[in-house]
Design a protein around this nucleic acid. Structure first.
Lengths: 247, 247
DNA sequence: TGGGGGCCTTGACTTGGATCAAGGGCCGGA
DNA sequence: TCCGGCCCTTGATCCAAGTCAAGGCCCCCA
């Protein structure tokens, strides 16, 4: 297992993040802020931190101090059971916040691992709370972000508790596709950043099942798969598959 | 399906809630507040609202305006798929907050149903945000409550994604037992408020499976079941069962 | 106090996905 | 450019949980 990397020895001033000039500002924390408010946000020292592929952004048990916003790259968060079983609890891409699980207990409760070389903005949580007390818009937006995380997890509970393997995979692909297109990428062709095993862990399936269902989707003309490369050929067909029960 | 009940025709002054004198204050929102701060909380008109067994506290799609703290009684929250499949996303007892799913989209995203005659405190969300801006302790505590909801859901994802039926049931019983004992009830004997079907929906199992696993636990001397009445005879045995994998 | 309906239990059988196993492709480092 | 390791695919078999079915319990209401 690899060690957590801390901010390495690079020229620090360049690492300061300006939310106001960030291309992700419409996806991330500053949504809906005026220019004036945005520059207030800039006044905080939100550091950036690079995280190499395979490195941990934080680990379960680490003291909680900051939230992290993915700037570039791709992460998974996961829980570990004592017996070694692993549950992936989410995949996170640019503009998405990680670490909210740590607020309640002052310690992180899951691991966050970069699935490719990535960069995050470090958001000291006490400062975020301080600014939230001054800026209603920021406060409300942060509450929305947490709420949406709860809603996302409800959706995963629905997947895991009530859906069949094909529905889970279809929902997963549609979700990825939608989030990529929000970020300006193609919604119909992309490269998976995670392995079949990680997808399976997230969806409560074994890697062989993930592989088989991908193959079946391909036979049915819904997608084209080649290793990590996915092309969605029939999004409507996938959508129809989800929530249609066993039928 | 039954209609949502609104505050009925009872004498209103008595319905005002004083957090400072509430027996649940150590479980609910006012945790950690000084007397002074607590009385600030009291100054808000947090109404109480009775909810009869089977009635909806809120429904998916309802406009979001308030959070609800269970004062007495027992609730489930659930999601409905178009095809009728239902996923129970949580069970909620005294002191627990419901409705946080609605903040993100300004609409509730799940249904909350009383499983017995209950009473909730209505917490207008804009006022809660207003007070949070004035009271750091309240702000921080509210963030902790939301964070813990996220962590709880991670736990459910672990259950649903990685555990076998016996482990799920054992974890479920231990969790209920722990929450009841926090509230001053027996941790070893209690009456389930929900049906086998609702337990199954929460745990991603069919009601027959829930019933069979209860019977098996009984044969093994872990619990005594008689319909809704549960006695935990060997909590350590149940604990051992969880997270021990297939072994 | 007797009847009906919801809920629970149990048995027999089925099945979707897990497990076990073998082989192939791709990529990064020597 | 060749090797080794990781990841992916596919086939054969197994099994935990689902499905279908029958009957019993309990409680509420007439």
């Amino acid at each position: 297992m690899q060690a957590t990397r801390i901010v390495p020895d690079v020229d620090l001033p360049r690492l300061k993040t300006a939310c106001s000039s960030c291309s992700l500002r419409e996806l991330c924390l500053p949504v809906g802020l005026s220019h004036e408010e945005m520059s207030k946000l800039d006044s905080l020292v939100f550091l950036r931190r690079p995280v190499k592929r395979g490195d941990y952004l934080f680990r379960a048990g680490d003291p909680f101090a900051s939230l992290y916003a993915a700037r570039t790259g791709f992460f998974k968060t996961k829980l570990l059971l004592e017996d070694g079983r692993e549950q992936v609890t989410g995949f996170h891409m640019a503009g998405e916040l990680m670490g909210m699980d740590g607020i309640g207990s002052e310690r992180h409760t899951c691991d966050a691992v970069a699935l490719e070389d990535s960069e995050v903005c470090v958001i000291p949580f006490d400062r975020l709370e301080g600014l939230s007390r001054e800026m209603q818009v920021l406060q409300h937006h942060f509450h929305k972000v947490m709420s949406r995380e709860i809603v996302r997890e409800h959706g995963v509970m629905m997947l895991l508790g009530s859906m069949r393997a094909e529905e889970r995979l279809a929902a997963f692909l549609l979700n990825l596709s939608q989030r990529l297109s929000t970020r300006g990428y193609s919604s119909s062709e992309f490269n998976l950043r995670m392995t079949r095993e990680e997808i399976g862990s997230y969806l409560g399936l074994k890697l062989e099942t993930v592989s088989r269902v991908f193959s079946r989707f391909q036979e049915e003309g819904l997608i084209a798969v080649q290793q990590k490369n996915i092309r969605i050929l029939d999004a409507a067909g996938l959508r129809e598959l989800v929530g249609r029960g066993a039928g």
